[in-house]
Design a protein around this nucleic acid. Structure first.
Lengths: 226, 226, 226, 226
DNA sequence: TATGAATGAGAGTTCATTCAT
DNA sequence: TATGAATGAACTCTCATTCAT
């Protein structure tokens, strides 16, 4: 199991700062470090990632990384937070609560898959790891629960508008289905570079909005023409 | 990151063999080792698991573990294989291909969640880990693909019988949705000890068979009364 | 650095006894073990050789090896002794003390290189190892000194017959030269499978009997036509 | 197999740096490490040497050794290279190609034995080990071949100047004889602390330049009076 | 005679983390 | 702000050797 440098050739060129050296303001340095860390954690996995490589890729010495972003675990969590913040802000913008539920769902899914597609080796890899590596499960659970809650709220809201109601646990199950299915297809998307994120979102809409039964009867859900 | 013995107190009582000592035939010892390994890997995670603990819990010294089951990675894979073989044989028995598709699906899901419920800290934990720890992804991908293929085949078969047809990629998406949603709910089940596996299966049926749309219109899918 | 079995394929066929099993008289078993040990020690080196492989190749379980031939070190020494006894008895027969000195030398060298050529991966490899591995240096020194002494005695005898005398240290130096040069060329021979041992002996005769000076003046020593 | 500290008593006094502690620049530390490693490898042999002892003797903890000079094998090769570079540069200076061949040979041998005498427990011990320990044979073969080639070239050059010629294989045999005999006598020298390197060189000149025949006839080669 | 089961002891290697400058 | 030098602590894996049968 050999491990090769993430970027071959000239080490200066490999640095995330493009070789830039010397005094750099803290905020900027931190971003460079996070960039490097996301890259290394994604490629190697949390445990096989080593701080030396992250430091080198940031164009800084190890003590700087510790000084700015703390221990390895804290660094990983910082990565997770930055990436998830990016995702969440994207989704929030996409899924306008005033839209009808299928439109909300569609936009949310589309936003999600587009994000995943654009960060193929960043977000989803970190996320998957975090879900199973013990010290991060708490962090991740919180994120996941937040998402599940948003979804149940939106579904519930839509139902109430029509005077209907569904038992909370069923709503939760629906939300978990959505989240799980999305994760599953996100993995698939990450492995199929030619697949268009929008198409993936459509597929999932078909599956979860119509349901297998309808789907098998020949119904098809189509994205609204923009 | 605390690390306490898996079972406190008398180390003899902690052993997976219930304290039995001395010479044990190979086949039996191997099972004890796998039991111990599944336990330790699940609780600690692959990387935090250490071979000493697994050995001690098997009632044997470390070299025996290496002699019988190879390196740590090989041991993990052996665990994975044993557990997944148990699962697969259960599922195959449950989902009789002559049944109508919703019945097949229902039985498959029920079998799956019952298995997961019965091995709350075995199978699903190993499985989740394997999906993200690099050296095992190949093994896991193979398992997952096998499952996805079975599902698509069954769906396809059911469709053909009715003279219908769906594009392969859509079938795959459906299967991935099922698998992902199942994994997601399996996690939830593992975290909710009071939840009945059958109910979890029902919830998922509602979500994926009927679809969110139907569900929101008030339709409900009900398991057949036995 | 992978290590592959010394003989591939069917393990039964790999055994030095040709697959023969069951009760075998002690003397015969010991020879099988020594055969196996010589092979393994030569190929792997003393330290990388492991008792499991030797036992397996002997067609016996490890405890038998220990019972018959003792510890790993003792086993190695037993190999060394058996092989060197074979060599010495060959040489003693070859170099008849009544012959003129160059004839003795020639026959001795020829005998030596023929032996080495015939045991390309036995004797010389063991011997080389033993010279540098600490616990065996004593054993080896004794062997080497015995050879050096024989040579000096023979040279001295020949000189006395002609009423001449050479200082002991010079005789020793000559003998050491012969031994060292022989070892050196033996290695070379081991690496050149097509080279004829007799030719190697001739080359060495030219070098050490005539000397570089004579050689460069065009003199040549020729082996006697038999 | 006893194993006692290389230098008894105060561990600080045992350090190759004479007790100097604290921060030391890399270049210097590396030399200390190599010094320590040469000592330990020579005394204990490659396999019985252990990295802890080398580290301690360098006045540093193990990880520093790994950081600067790599694995045990790489460290050994580094020792070999440093020592052989020292030797080669010495020899090259000694054996001026414009001199007559016996002068070249004499100077080369003298230089070699003086080097060996001065590093009695360094070079020759490492070298001997390397020849038999598998992973180093490549490195050693290269060194040896380089030496053999230099010798054959020089002999060949001398011959051509006199309009003479000798078959390549015979030249090689001559060179191998020289090298082998030198190695053999170097060992002897290492075991006889009172022997003067110059005398050893003279003995070998007698043996290989004049040849046993001449030697026995009473001829003697004498080193030039300086 | 013969062996499967078992182990104590130790070695190399890696890494997160921190001083001293 | 920045870093080269340094380490404690683990952990995987191997092997010669011996019981118990």
């Amino acid at each position: 199991m050999q491990s090769s440098p993430l970027t071959p050739g000239d080490p200066a060129a490999a640095r995330a700062d493009g070789g830039r050296t010397g005094r750099v303001p803290r905020a900027e340095r931190e971003q460079q470090m996070l960039d490097a860390a996301v890259l290394v954690f994604s490629r190697r996995g949390f445990h096989h990632a080593n701080m030396d490589e992250i430091a080198e890729l940031s164009g800084v010495s190890k003590p700087m990384v510790y000084a700015y972003l703390g221990t390895k675990e804290e660094l990983f969590i910082a990565c997770l937070r930055r990436e998830s913040a990016r995702l969440v802000s994207g989704l929030a913008a996409a899924a306008d609560p005033t839209l009808p539920p299928d439109q909300q769902l569609w936009r949310g899914l589309k936003g999600f898959f587009e994000f995943v597609g654009a960060h193929r080796d960043g977000w989803s890899v970190l996320y998957r790891q975090a879900r199973t590596q013990q010290p991060f499960s708490a962090e991740i659970s919180r994120m996941r629960e937040a998402v599940v809650e948003v979804i149940t709220d939106r579904l519930d809201g839509a139902l109430r508008q029509e005077g209907r109601q569904v038992k909370p646990d069923d709503l939760t199950a629906m939300a978990l289905t959505l989240v799980g299915a999305s994760e599953s297809l996100a993995d698939w998307l990450a492995d199929h570079p030619d697949e268009d994120p929008g198409r993936t979102a459509t597929r999932l809409m078909n599956a979860v909005w119509l349901g297998a039964d309808q789907l098998m009867r020949g119904s098809t859900w189509r994205p609204p023409t923009p």
